[in-house]
Nucleic acid binder design. Structure first.
Lengths: 337, 337
DNA sequence: CTGAAAGCGCTTACAG
DNA sequence: CTGAAAGCGCTTACAG
């Protein structure tokens, strides 16, 4: 394969200096006849500027790229969040790296270091909840760091969150309003901020309703659908089972749906899921959810990122995006028994 | 913010030459005492190598990054595909850019050009089906191009596809085996290769079963769930409605599910969807699907990409990944009369 | 305005 | 083995 043409080649063919080619490529008008000669040479050679070389010498040193680290790009919540970041970045001509940590702090760090080594201008992180003190050093590489979905531990930076506690509390009050007192809570790894917050919202709502919390109804560290299905079956087999479930993450919701159906209890046990799911409205009963707005989370954090890149020096901001209760049937089942 | 330390700073602090620092950073042993001095200086300064500058001068000119262009990263199919590419890239220390074309050829081209300008080593493209002749020029920038999910039009390159026609034919034969003769086909934009292929599989299977195709049962250019719901309702209102539906894309399947349920016909009209969906197995009846294997598609195309980067000069390869029929109930409903 | 020279942060022949 | 110099593909002072 032939070597790719450089500015030098363009300059030689056009019979002008390298500086002139650089100016034309960067939109500096200059003498029209020279600009035209350069443009012709560019077309003939099929010249394409190397943005990484350009970035190396440019005063602002910006690469027009950002990195996004989520738990799993294949999870619909994070996929939508990625799309939000991408769309906002696109409005600025910025391209987006994406990576999945699988909630593993080592992988998170590898991704972050990989992105900064490639000179991203900004880095949006869904922190896994482990030791993130390494981020302090990363910040010194010049990348602008922000958090989304969960706040950082060590670092204070711009952060965009869902109203996790508020959403969970809304779910509890909703179930309570439909007569439930024994409400089970199925939560993800407690290392994860959102899991802890949703549990906190559950506890606070229970307390404010003067409901005693039966600790046997709180099941934590449930990290996938299969585990959630098992835990659900176990809860329903208890001597004194719950009359309602609050599943605090999308894959947990899926597992609970399967377990309820396999036991033929989906019309008898109330259920509210945190985070919406495609087809949740097509089930019978429809699954009542506390919907998050992941695309919006991505757009909001993207907005904050570019405000920083534009030079804002405000103190770190924290934006909390409200959740929405969507009643569809499963959360409006009255307690039986 | 202080300037980030460079190799020059490390060299000065360690009291060695720039070359020595470069060697240490690149793992060349050299004199142990010098290596140790350099390492100490690196730690003290918090030095981080600039990979883009490194790439500029290195003989192989590789950036350890790849780009992926899909229709929409928020669509679960493409999100899983992205995850497959990411996982394979990770095994080689390569990071992944992701972008959404929304089936728009201009956006596709902007993404491709953006990625090549940033010197990606490889580019995996889900082509939108428009004029992709611009790719010939992109290829000359040195990036290795591959296609996934759909083949290129102009360019012949390594390609990984699902067995679209075969999967659609399997769906038709399955419905036929359950007694159906009037099988409707709901397809996406015909500009999209997979839509055309699935229609082809439908027609070929109908022909080989000696079933006359009623053209009024073929509805194309259905590009989102809402349109699919409308088309489904329209089909079911026909004087001579179909007894079965084949919905040829995941969002079309979602729309049809909603329409069938809103008409209370989900237990009477048979339905097979192309591409699996989360919760499809929790519906009543479960939705029978022709499952694709998007993560596998991503991993396979990633494998081909790295074989090329490793120097394979074979003719362009085409891998076709089989689909899997998953019977869950909706596809096994007998025709009603 | 244009062009020659220096330099961005690295790697790589090359000389010692 | 190490270090001084050249160079990757660009941009940016600087001189004319």
């Amino acid at each position: 394969m032939a070597r790719q043409p450089t500015m030098k080649d363009v300059a030689a063919l056009a019979g002008v200096s390298l500086s002139t080619v650089s100016r034309v490529v960067n939109g500096d008008p200059g003498r029209p006849d020279l600009a035209e000669k350069v443009q012709r040479a560019i077309d003939v050679l099929g010249y394409r500027r190397d943005l990484t070389a350009s970035n190396l010498r440019r005063a602002d040193r910006t690469s027009a790229s950002v990195g996004l680290v989520v738990a799993d790009v294949a999870n619909p919540f994070f996929a939508a969040l990625l799309r939000g970041v991408e769309d906002l970045a696109r409005t600025r001509g910025v391209l987006t790296y994406a990576g999945s940590s699988d909630e593993d702090t080592d992988r998170e760090r590898e991704l972050v270091q990989g992105f900064t080594a490639r000179q991203v201008d900004g880095l949006v992180i869904v922190p896994s909840g482990g030791d993130d003190s390494y981020l302090l050093r990363e910040q010194q590489t010049g990348a602008t760091l922000l958090f989304v979905d969960r706040p950082g531990v060590t670092l204070n930076a711009d952060t965009v969150l869902s109203d996790n506690a508020g959403g969970a509390a809304t779910a509890v009050r909703h179930l309570h309003a439909h007569g439930h007192r024994r409400i089970a809570f199925l939560g993800d790894l407690q290392r994860i901020f959102t899991s802890r917050e949703r549990l906190r919202g559950y506890r606070e709502a229970m307390a404010s309703l003067n409901l005693a919390v039966d600790e046997s109804l709180i099941r934590l560290e449930v990290h996938n659908s299969q585990a959630a299905a098992e835990v659900t079956r176990d809860l329903l087999s208890q001597p004194d089972p719950p009359t309602a479930l609050l599943t605090a993450q999308n894959l947990i919701t899926v597992g609970a749906i399967h377990a309820l159906r396999s036991r033929q209890l989906h019309h008898r046990i109330a259920h509210v899921g945190f985070d919406d799911l495609l087809l949740a409205d097509a089930l019978d009963p429809g699954v009542t959810v506390i919907a998050q707005h992941p695309t919006s989370l991505g757009e909001r954090v993207g907005t904050l990122l570019f405000e920083r890149l534009d030079g804002t020096t405000e103190a770190p901001r924290r934006i909390v995006v409200p959740t929405s209760l969507i009643p569809r049937g499963s959360g409006e089942i009255a307690p039986t028994g």
